[in-house]
Nucleic acid binder design. Sequence first.
DNA 1: ATTGTTGCAAAGGGTTTGCACGTAA
DNA 2: TTACGTGCAAACCCTTTGCAACAAT
Lengths: 142, 142
Amino acid sequence: MTRQRRIILDALESVRTHPTAEDIYRMVRPRLQRLSLATVYRNLEVLCEQGLARKIETAGTTRRYDGDASEHYHVRCLGCGAIGDVRKAPVSVSRTGLARATDFQIVGHRLEFLGYCPSCKGRRRRGARDAPARRRSGGGDV
Amino acid sequence: MTRQRRIILDALESVRTHPTAEDIYRMVRPRLQRLSLATVYRNLEVLCEQGLARKIETAGTTRRYDGDASEHYHVRCLGCGAIGDVRKAPVSVSRTGLARATDFQIVGHRLEFLGYCPSCKGRRRRGARDAPARRRSGGGDV
DNA sequence: ATTGTTGCAAAGGGTTTGCACGTAA
DNA sequence: TTACGTGCAAACCCTTTGCAACAAT
């Protein structure tokens, strides 16, 4: 556990914004002026392997990381790309139904919600059009 | 509807393998020797806009396309990266529960299953270790 | 004729890697 | 000490874009 690793983990755990590697790089830069982005990536990888962090790979967007490694789902804002937490999501999947619907052996699933964050929600209510997506298009896929 | 576009759509509809843009490029190359990969991407984009195809953006992997535009879920093989169809998945999500679990306004969700395809399933049963993932790592995310 | 499409090549972005140096255990 | 972690820069992969030539209506 190097100085860099500890500081990166601290930064990640100190926010609830699900930052990208770049975000974290900028967050810790003041404390580690000689830091390289590659080191951020490598350490995030290690921290995920150790179960101290989680990758959030929402399709078609830049990868984000979560310092809260507990079980929960995420919701992505279609307005601004922000990621929010969804705790205790009321989702049920029938195992036996699944076995009938595919010849794959299912061992898990990934679920991501799409919606609007509180601030984009307000903006929509007031009639403005969507803010441009912060990263990539993100639209139109299944 | 250009020659290229028609041939690309034909190719996509002729398989159930959920090919990548590169896959399609290779499939149609014999009929269109002067084709450029950029044209494949551009046409797939248009076909998706027209509702004749769908993008499958499973997190952390190369994008794949589906010539079957009807509603269905997908399952990704953790052994080889293959994508299978899951029809009439027995999944239910409670809207009111969701409203309690997050302050985002939820408008949809994306669900992807993870598992093993028939051939990797067999390989596992016979005790072999996993084949290396065909593209990227794909492991460890939420 | 007019608008949209192609091929090419180059740019783009996020992420990963090779290597020599440095540092935690 | 000795394996492991670092910084830097370059490589990578997939996808998108600028542009001039071209084909569809």
